[in-house]
């Protein structure tokens, strides 16, 4: 019959209307500040730096300041300065590691390119600050988070990374500097 399509459409919208009162799937809104948040195992927004030993964050951070991520970051929001020891020799760890999260677009490219599994995506999101310049420029101290935390937010991925690092450490035994050192 002519016009049956319109009636079918009306039935669909009516189903959505009444369904939204009984079916949780038809009303997916989360009233955020009052009722939880929508962070899932797949949430990713800004990167953070991983360290291994909870007692010694600066000593066990995985980053070696190779600056690959700095070069690859599309909006150029990473700034790295390598630390030098007393003799002026590079110490293979960053003295400065800043990410301007007002610029970061969460593309995860830094994570993909890092050869040392040291930069990973975080899922925290309550990052608002009254200071829009300094407050949004995250320093090394803010970015450093433990491997335990990584296991907490993305368990599967963290386990995979751990396995990979362990395998790497076993095979080529006499490498002068292990990434974790």
């Amino acid at each position: 019959m002519l016009g049956i399509g319109i009636l079918k459409g009306m039935v669909v919208t009516a189903k959505n209307f009444f369904g939204s009162f009984v079916n949780k799937r038809l009303l997916p809104t989360i009233q955020y500040p009052e009722a939880g948040n929508s962070v899932t195992l797949f949430s990713r927004n800004i990167p953070f730096l991983v360290y291994d030993n909870d007692e010694d964050p600066l000593g066990t951070m995985r980053c070696v300041a190779c600056k690959i991520c700095e070069k690859e970051c599309p909006p150029q929001c990473i700034y790295i300065v390598m630390e030098k020891d007393a003799n002026g020799k590079p110490a293979k760890r960053p003295k400065v590691f800043d990410i301007d999260i007002s610029v970061c677009m969460g593309c995860q490219i830094c994570v993909e390119v890092c050869p040392f599994e040291s930069i990973k995506m975080d899922s925290t999101f309550e990052l608002s600050t009254p200071d829009r310049f300094e407050g949004l420029l995250l320093k090394r101290e803010h970015l450093l988070k433990s491997n335990t935390y990584f296991h907490k937010i993305h368990p599967d991925e963290a386990q995979e990374v751990d396995d990979r690092l362990a395998a790497k450490q076993k095979k080529p035994a006499p490498t002068p500097s292990t990434p974790a050192a």
Binding site: T13, N16, F17, S20, F21, L26, L27, P28, T29, Q31
Partner: peptide, 9 residues
Amino acid sequence: GLARIQNRI
């Protein structure tokens, strides 16, 4: 009503 039709609150 429109919100409910569009699965909003």
